[in-house]
Amino acid sequence: MKMMAPDTSATWCEPAAPSQRAEWAELLARAHLDGFTPEAERAEIDDILFGIAADPAVSVRRALAEAVAGAQNISPALIRQLARDADSVAASVIQSSPHMSEDELVEIYVAGRPKLREAVLGRAQLSESLTATIARFADAEDALRLLNHPDASLATETLRFIAETFGEEASIRGALVDRPDLSADIRQFLMRKTSEAVAASPLVSLALGESTGRSIGEGACQAGTATILGGARKSELVKLVERLAASEQLSPAVLLRLACSGSLEGLSEALAQLAGVQAVRVRSILVEGRNKPFAALCQRAGLPQASIAILFHAVDVWRHADEDGEMLTDGEVAARIMQNLAADLASTKAGTMAPALAFLRGIAREADSRRATQVSSAAIAAA
């Protein structure tokens, strides 16, 4: 019964039919793995299993592969022989065997056979180094499977690569945004992609006009960017600000929204990046609250005069609120800034302040709209 050469391996249990050989192969392999075969015969049975792995019937080899796929106490050489077989045979060992090395899995995935790629992605756990390689050779469908894998470890750089490569795909954006481990700069990148996609939608263009749709999308993106900046962890803030500055997204509108929402840490980092000064110096200027150093800083950062006035008054409002222990809404901040701007209007041509006032009114309207929505939701929940 023992087979010594591949060309005679089909005789291991002839003249049985393939279906019967497949059944016997599974039974023998499971008995061997469960320790039911005599110790004196185990070496011989190992040889028989190699013979079964060379059986001319794919169904027989597949039965063997499925029986030994997840086993630790099986010959690694047998696993590798099965992993080089036809896709339907190899898939089960590639997906489940602990004897498959990471290098082997990478090689299999890069080779690009769809069923075997699926098997690699179906493994119970995927390491950071493996997912990094997979991401660079994946199509959108595989990238989504990688993101949805419950035990795939993905480094921040791998997530960033997926976002930058497949960010046009709504399903990819959704899967990324749902991740609690997503860094602030990737989240902002995806938010911008979503905003651009909505603005470019034929439905939006038809309903609002291309120019209006683009303007609304840009406003939403600025608001979202300010929100992400304001909520970013300190460890992420510098990198996020650097990326936004490099892509020219640190606009006056974003800085104004940061100031009006009280996100002074984000504002400090943004002004430091734009002005080319140390963030600690910027924070000192904001805390001191003196007009001339503040104006000089903003001018160095390239901000327009009307924006500087709002920024100064916004920081002033939040500084006093902090001293008094007040909790302010965006709408209350906007109202106080407009009150403080009244003195500026008395000594400045009103036309130059019109854009600033329009911006503040917009902030107040947004706050009113959010408050109305919250009240409505509370009423519905209480009904």
Rank of each mutant, 00 (worst) to 15 (best):
E164I: 01
A275I: 06
T133C: 09
Q20T: 12
D344P: 00
L154S: 06
E41R: 04
A29C: 10
A91H: 03
A31P: 04
N73A: 15
A54D: 11
R42T: 14
I337G: 13
I310T: 12
R361Y: 10
A86M: 07
L274W: 07
L28P: 13
H99K: 15
L345T: 07
S92I: 00
A295W: 08
E332D: 08
N73K: 15
L303E: 13
L203Q: 10
T158L: 04
R319P: 07
R42N: 10
V277H: 07
V317I: 08
Q249P: 07
A10R: 15
I216S: 04
R173S: 06
E169D: 15
D178T: 01
F294R: 11
S9T: 06
E248H: 12
S183H: 02
G112C: 06
T348V: 13
A378F: 11
A5K: 13
R365C: 00
G70E: 09
C260R: 12
A63K: 02
C260L: 14
E168L: 05
L360A: 09
T352W: 14
T11L: 09
G266E: 00
A306L: 10
R173H: 06
V110S: 03
A381G: 01
G231S: 05
G122A: 02
V238Y: 05
A119Q: 06
S251M: 04
E248P: 03
G331V: 04
Q81I: 10
Q222C: 10
M3P: 02
